[in-house]
Design a protein around this nucleic acid. Structure first.
Length: 481
RNA sequence: CGGGGCGUGGCUCAGCCUGGUUAGAGCGCCUGCUUCGGGAGCAGGAGGCCGGUGGUUCGAAUCCACUCGCCCCGACCA
């Protein structure tokens, strides 16, 4: 049996990227569309995204945000208003030049992000300090003509949420940026069970047109970092470009302060990559399309009994959990075990004649494969408990891996050696000069993923790992996706 | 966008170098019967203009050119 599985899915430890694309196809999360770089998100993959949406949206609403929807197309002139912004996105914008047979007098960009169109609207909506803050989020698709694509991690079109807020002061905007950053971190850790580091981007890595970009970064099993979400303080760059002004309490006209922030279907990719194993997906219970699968086991003579008990359990569980009941008779239990494991269902519930005799059933965890006998009267409570345990265990694994692959050094040759041989994050002091940042990139392919927010006195007396001048920051270096 | 690899039933691949009548295998799929506590067995069956276009040739999956797509490695990004 072991042999057979290996034939079907490449080992994760051996070839992560092959494993990744193969598991996505076999678990039917996504399929390649006939256009380059585009994919179809199939029901199993979309269900994960829907759970992400639901759990995140709840957090946005709790912090006062509301959803809205802005147009897919952005007139070229709008996109050009903020200089850095256009420059940053120019290479990857898809253009609409015709409507039917007629050539448009002005090209329309298919949104790569919506700052331009949203800010254009905000300039009409903002007049007084009483109009602020504006706290709007939109769930949308965006298009970026990427050269290299990978399912979920980087596709030409992807789904995301983008928050766009307007505030009266820098402080309010900054508070919002950090509030969202914390929501992202908490969400990814608690719901996706992925350890992330939160921090600030270096100027080189920040969003085109932003004052500052904040990020959450996760570590993938191959030791490469993945940017999991970003929160930007746009300052007044866009309000000046789009003329978003308000009259303040002091009766003076002021440019507004803005933020924008987003996470995308890339999170689905991260979840797949971080938790899976050689036998397929392992999905965190909070976002798994199915949290439990019921597999009845019977010989011909006990068929009736087993099926009726199993169905009864299913009816009970489905009220509270995302449950699937696999009553198919054309597959053997063993086949089903392997199949649902590959699809990453966190808990399998086996119900057979032996269990029924004892008024019990068997729970099997996907993450540890541990089997537990459960009294049938307490299935709901036990399932709830076990799902939480799996959820917690997955996070602990991710956290352990991330910590084990986060190393500090003051020595540049050691930094290079770690990046080359062990990968992961390397924490080192940095003088803040782009030259040093670039040198590291050229020599190691590692970039500054983030600068932690609580540097405090950690840099006191430290010298830049590259040039030896006094350090201004602590930087997390890593190769990245 | 540069370098490398690969496109043959749903999947994994053989055949191609050295063109030649009906293009193969395993798995999967369909039907039937027997099975069922870790990917069951037997019997029968369906399914492929060999990624596309053009060329060479009496004849192309096979040779040539172009093109499209996918994967990997590098320069840019949620």
């Amino acid at each position: 049996m072991e042999e057979k599985l290996v034939q079907e899915i490449p080992r994760k430890s051996q070839d992560l990227s092959q494993w990744y694309v193969e598991v996505i196809r076999r678990a039917e999360l996504a399929d390649y569309a006939p256009m380059k770089g585009m994919m179809v998100i199939r029901p199993s993959g979309y269900a994960i995204w829907e759970n992400i949406q639901r759990l995140l949206d709840r957090r946005f609403k709790e912090t006062g945000h509301t959803n809205a929807y802005f147009p897919l197309f952005i007139p070229e002139s709008f996109l050009k208003k903020e200089a850095e912004h256009v420059e940053g996105f120019a290479p990857e914008v898809a253009w609409v030049t015709h409507g039917g047979q007629e050539e448009l007098q002005e090209r329309l960009a298919v949104r790569p992000t919506s700052e331009a169109i949203i800010c254009a609207m905000y300039s009409k909506w903002v007049r007084s300090w009483r109009d602020l803050p504006i706290l709007i989020n939109q769930w949308a698709n965006v298009v970026r003509w990427e050269k290299v694509t990978r399912p979920f991690l980087r596709t030409t079109e992807f789904l995301w949420q983008e928050g766009h807020t307007v505030h009266a002061t820098y402080e309010d905007a900054q508070e919002e940026v950090l509030r969202i950053l914390n929501i992202y971190k908490e969400f990814i850790e608690n719901e996706l069970a992925i350890k992330v580091y939160a921090g600030k981007k270096s100027d080189r890595e920040k969003f085109a047109g932003a004052l500052a970009t904040y990020t959450v970064e996760a570590l993938m099993p191959d030791g490469k970092a993945l940017q999991a979400g970003t929160s930007h303080n746009l300052g007044q760059n866009f309000s000046k470009a789009f003329d978003i002004k308000f009259e303040d309490r002091d009766q003076k006209l002021k440019y507004a302060w803005q933020t924008s922030w987003g996470v995308s279907t890339r999170l689905v990719g991260a979840t797949i990559m971080v938790h899976g194993d050689d036998d397929g997906l392992i999905l965190p219970p909070h976002v798994a399309p199915y949290q439990a699968v019921i597999v009845p086991i019977f010989k011909v003579k006990d068929k009736e009994t087993v099926l009726s008990v199993a169905e009864n359990i299913y009816e009970r569980l489905r009220k509270k959990f995302r449950t699937v009941y696999d009553y198919r008779e054309e597959y053997t239990p063993g086949w089903k075990f392997a199949e649902w494991e590959m699809r990453g269902v966190p808990i399998r519930i086996e119900i057979g004649p032996r269990d029924i005799k004892e008024n019990s059933l068997i729970f099997v965890r996907r993450d540890t494969r541990e089997k537990v006998k459960i009294n049938m009267d307490e299935v709901e409570e036990k399932l709830e408990e076990l799902l939480e345990e799996v959820q917690k265990n997955l996070f602990q694994r991710s956290e352990k891996f991330t910590f084990e692959n986060t190393r500090e050094t003051l020595d540049y040759s050691e930094l290079k050696e770690i990046i080359e041989e062990k990968r992961g994050f390397v924490i080192s002091p940095w003088c803040g000069d782009q030259k040093c940042e670039l040198k590291v990139k050229e020599e190691t392919k590692a970039t500054i993923r983030l600068i932690p927010l609580d540097e405090g006195d950690k840099i006191v007396g430290k010298k830049c790992v590259v040039c030896g001048k006094p350090a201004k920051h602590i930087a997390y270096f890593a190769r990245a996706y």
